[in-house]
Design a binder for these strands. Structure first.
Length: 215
DNA sequence: GCCCAGGTGGGTA
DNA sequence: TACCCACATGGG
């Protein structure tokens, strides 16, 4: 039997309970984490974030003033450090320029225009942009990631190679456009994805969604 | 030693 | 548009 999106999320919420995402102390830390976690295990991101924190660089002006070399050394554990240092510099430059580093002010902007602007920054694609808008700014936007597509495709709701925009359009059509709900929904996909829906294991005997599997 | 992880941008046909 | 590749560390 093919479940609906709402059924999947209800089942996951039932199983995991509220996730309290994103794992960060401040909205700015969310933004930094969103860049550092690109194609990277979160455990490695934590080390990099810890390094930045202990150096007192986890604020917009601090990062803007730091040398590229220093940032590279601190974020080395997160991988892709040359690219990511550049991305962080571009992101904080934009942030300081557009709102003086005060992320609260971004809430007053037109959401669609803001998303386009963030997407226009080098190094920020759809998932990173939406992570920032959902978890740092607090907008009602669903974040699509590899886990989301993997889980949904294994239950026949989207194609395995479905595009980001197609999957997001589906979620925005089927789900309440509410920040708390969409925040929770994405976090639940990550929870079940990490535990049961890795690339290789096709079937998950202990998965809370196993009752729906019919493929 | 090999595969994978909460992607993105650039190059080529 | 549709592939292909570089980017890089750390854990299983």
């Amino acid at each position: 039997m093919k479940p609906t999106l709402r059924q999947i999320i209800n089942r996951l919420l039932d199983h995991y309970g509220p996730r309290h995402w994103w794992p960060a102390d401040t909205p700015f830390e969310v933004m930094v984490g969103a860049i550092l976690t690109q194609n990277t295990a979160w455990t490695n991101v934590e080390k990099a974030i810890g390094n930045l924190k202990s150096r007192g660089l986890l604020d917009p002006q601090g990062l803007a003033d730091a040398s590229n070399q220093e940032i590279v050394e601190l974020i080395r554990p997160a991988g892709y450090f040359n690219q990511k240092a550049k991305k962080l510099k571009i992101m904080v430059g934009w942030l300081l320029n557009t709102c003086g580093g005060d992320i609260e002010k971004l809430k007053k902007r037109d959401p669609e225009e803001l998303r386009k602007e963030v997407l226009g920054l080098w190094g920020i694609g759809p998932e990173t942009a939406d992570s920032i808008l959902c978890y740092a700014v607090g907008l009602p936007i669903f974040v699509v990631d590899a886990y989301t597509i993997r889980v949904l495709s294994r239950h026949g709701l989207v194609a395995p190679d479905a595009s980001y925009d197609v999957v997001q359009a589906l979620t925005h059509q089927e789900l309440p456009l509410d920040n708390s709900y969409l925040n929770e929904a994405h976090a639940l996909f990550v929870a079940v994805g990490k535990e049961f829906c890795k690339r290789k294991n096709p079937i998950c005997a202990q998965c809370p969604l196993k009752e729906y599997i019919s493929l």
